[in-house]
Amino acid sequence: MSKLHLVFGGRVADPQGLEFTNPDDLHVVGIFPDYAKAEAAWRANAQRTVDDATMKYVVVHLHKLLQPEG
């Protein structure tokens, strides 16, 4: 199985947390086949919104959710 990664972002209630204030407005950047591509996509979007402290982008390791033991 490939190691899929999801990158998405949105507004958070607290910049240090992961409580997204409006899940309907999440920006799904995409699903990537490896961490390096996911990190590049995350970095591009995070840097684009760096001046907005309530915007947060994250990388989710989908492969760990699909096969937690691996």
Rank of each mutant, 00 (worst) to 15 (best):
T21R: 15
D34M: 00
V7T: 11
Y35A: 04
Q47T: 10
E69N: 01
A13F: 14
F32Q: 03
H61R: 11
V7G: 14
R43P: 04
G10M: 08
P68E: 02
V59R: 14
N45W: 08
D24V: 07
F32I: 03
M1T: 04
L62E: 02
V7I: 12
A13P: 05
I31R: 14
D24M: 14
A40F: 05
K56V: 03
N45H: 15
S2D: 06
L65H: 04
Y35T: 01
Q67Y: 01
V7Q: 14
R11G: 07
E19C: 10
F8L: 15
M55T: 12
R11Q: 15
A44K: 15
S2V: 05
I31M: 11
F32A: 04
A41V: 00
D51C: 10
H27S: 10
E69F: 00
W42D: 07
A36K: 12
L26K: 06
A53E: 12
D51F: 13
Y35H: 11
H61G: 02
T49S: 12
P23T: 00
A13I: 11
P23E: 02
L6V: 07
G70N: 10
V29T: 15
V60I: 09
N45F: 08
G70F: 03
A46V: 05
W42I: 07
P23C: 04
G70I: 05
D25I: 02
A46G: 08
Q16A: 13
A53K: 15
N22Q: 08
A41H: 10
G9Q: 10
A46K: 14
G10L: 11
Y35V: 02
L62N: 02
Y35P: 02
D34F: 00
R48N: 12
L66F: 00
W42P: 08
L65P: 03
V50Y: 12
A44I: 09
G17A: 08
L6N: 08
Q47A: 07
P33V: 00
